[in-house]
Simulated assay, not measured.
Amino acid sequence: MAIEMEAVRFGYRGAEVIRGASFAVPEGSITCLLGRNGSGKTTLIRLVNGILRPQAGSIRVDGHDVALSPRPAVARRIAFVPQEHQGVFPYGVEELVVMGRNPHLSLISRPGRRDFAAARAAMEAVGIAHLAGRDYMQISGGERQLVLIARALTQETPYLLMDEPTSHLDFSNQHAIMAIVRRITRERGVGVLVAMHDPNLALAFADRVVMLREGQVYRAGPAAEVMTPEHLQALYQMPIDVVALPDGRRIIVTEAR
């Protein structure tokens, strides 16, 4: 059971952005996309989510080709958490979270008891049940990101896509949110594909890492094997070292420029 990408190619207006990418996202693990700006991370997330279609190759979710699947069917297998959500209408937190049930509802039906129960369970899981009655636009950035994660969990999908979900958050909230994602991954067996800028976050939380360089998969595999000084230096084109701490954790350091 996995998201499988095989020899995928994609480009915009004749300029190829993804060049023969192949990797897998297994259930019950966090797979992190790492790469410099413009390496194709967001494009890959959109391809997996079915927003874009590969121009060559295939993307399968548990054996089903995403490009050939109806949009509601994809939404019942994959949930998406964006970088941030700039709301227009003053939705309440619970109201926004229960929207995650939309792929399970018909065009004319409204959320019922089971749908609100799923929303409440998701809010409990990420620790925001106390915000249920609040205005989404009146809570902090970290809380809004947790609302988006809860909405995705309410879809009850086996896979979760996240496009740089911590990029606008402070250091504390970055680690808090990734710790919640890791716990949910373990408890629910969800397969997570997350695009990140910060390799230290990937080193701390990812089970697997896919390094993208100019649209190609440069390295992919278990985080401990992929995130070596040599691979990181080649990826980011700068001096990098990986230092082991006394408690066994590792951190990435570089020279000040």
Rank of each mutant, 00 (worst) to 15 (best):
I149V: 15
A152D: 14
T154M: 11
T154R: 09
T157P: 11
P158N: 05
P158W: 10
P158Y: 06
P158H: 10
Y159N: 08
Y159V: 07
Y159A: 12
L161F: 12
M162G: 11
M162L: 15
M162F: 12
M162S: 06
P165M: 09
P165N: 06
T166C: 13
L169R: 08
D170Y: 12
D170G: 08
S172K: 14
Q174N: 04
A176W: 01
A176Y: 07
I177P: 05
A179H: 11
A179R: 15
I180H: 02
V181P: 06
R182T: 03
R183V: 04
R183A: 13
I184N: 06
R186A: 15
R186F: 01
R186I: 11
E187R: 13
R188Q: 15
V190Y: 08
G191H: 07
G191I: 07
V192I: 13
V194D: 04
A195P: 09
H197E: 10
P199K: 02
L201D: 01
A202D: 03
L203V: 01
L203E: 00
L203H: 01
A204K: 10
A204S: 10
A204E: 14
F205V: 00
F205E: 01
A206L: 02
A206F: 02
V209R: 06
M211P: 05
R213V: 06
E214M: 06
G215K: 06
Q216V: 05
V217M: 04
Y218P: 03
Y218V: 00
Y218F: 15
P222C: 00
P222D: 14
A223P: 08
E225F: 00
V226G: 08
V226F: 08
M227T: 09
E230W: 03
H231S: 12
L232M: 14
L232R: 05
Q233R: 12
A234P: 02
A234H: 13
Y236V: 03
Q237A: 14
M238Q: 13
D241V: 13
